[in-house]
Amino acid sequence: MTMNTATEAAAQAAAPYLSINNVEVIYNHVILVLKGVSLQVEQGSIVALLGANGAGKSTTLKSISNLLHAERGDVTKGSIEFKGARIDQMTPNELVRRGVIQVMEGRHCFGHLSIEENLLTGAYTRKISRGELNANLEKVYHYFPRLKTRRSSQAGYTSGGEQQMCAIGRALMAKPEMILLDEPSMGLAPQIVEEIFEIVKDLNTKEKVSFLLAEQNTMVALRYADFGYIMENGRIVMEGEAKELAANEDVKEFYLGLAGEGRKSFREVKHYRRRKRWLS
C-alpha cells in the first residue's frame, strides 16, 4: 500500500511539470494551425516560445489554458499534462483552480473596471477572507507599485505598460503556479519591456511561479528565459538552452538580420547558410 503510493509519488515526480505532446489544433473544423507541437516546461523555470507573427504561439498557449473553445478551435490530437494529470479537457475555471492561468496577448484588461477591480476579478476562483484578499492585493502592489498609484483609475484609460502590469497582476491574484504569458512586450517602449521582464524574473525567483512565455522579441525573451523553443508554421523548429539559442548563428542571423528585405523563413535561412558553407 505504502509502496504503491510511494511509487506513484515517484512517478509523479518524474513526470514533467507541464508537457505538451504532439498537439494538433484545428480552427473552425478546417484550419489546421498546430501540426504536432511538443514542448516541456520544468517546474520553476521560464520557458520562451519564440517565432514570427502567425507561427502559432498564441494558439499553443490557448490550447493549454483551454481558451480555444471560445474561438472555435479544437485540440484534435495529442495530449497536455500538468503535474502528471491530463488537462486537455478541463475548463479554464478548473485550470485556474489547479494553478495554471493565461495572460492573453493584448492584455485584455476589463476597460470599464478600475485597476483594483481588475485585480479583484483575478481572485474569482478563490474562497478567501477579505483579509487574505487584501494581503494578496498588497503583494501585487508590492511587485507593481505603479498599479497602486492608479488603483482607482478606469483600466481602459491607463497606459499600455500599466495595462500589461494590470493583466499580470490580475493573474497573480489567482495564486498561480504557472503563468502562460502571451507577448508582454507587444507595443511597449523598450524601457517598459525591461521593467516588466525584471518583474517576471522576480516573480519567478521569489514567488516560484513558472512561466511559459510567447514572444516575438526574441533577444529580450532569451535573456530572461532558461530554455527556448522556436516555432514556425505550427511546428517547433528548434529548441535549446536560452543561452545557446541566443548565441546560435542561425537564430542571430534570422532574428537580428531582418533589416530591409523582410523576414525570411527560418528554414530558408538555414538552407541558405548550409549552401553557403557547402560552397565555401
Binding site: S65, A70, I101, H108, H112, L113, E117, T121, A174
Partner: peptide, 23 residues
C-alpha cells in the same frame, strides 16, 4: 459584490473573464 464584479467583467470582455476562471 464579487458576482457583480464578475458580471461586469464578463460584460467588458468574455474571453478575458474566462481566462481568469470566471465561468
Amino acid at each position: 459584490t464579487k458576482v457583480g464584479r464578475a458580471l461586469r467583467a464578463v460584460a467588458d470582455d468574455h474571453q478575458a473573464a474566462q481566462s481568469v476562471g470566471i465561468p
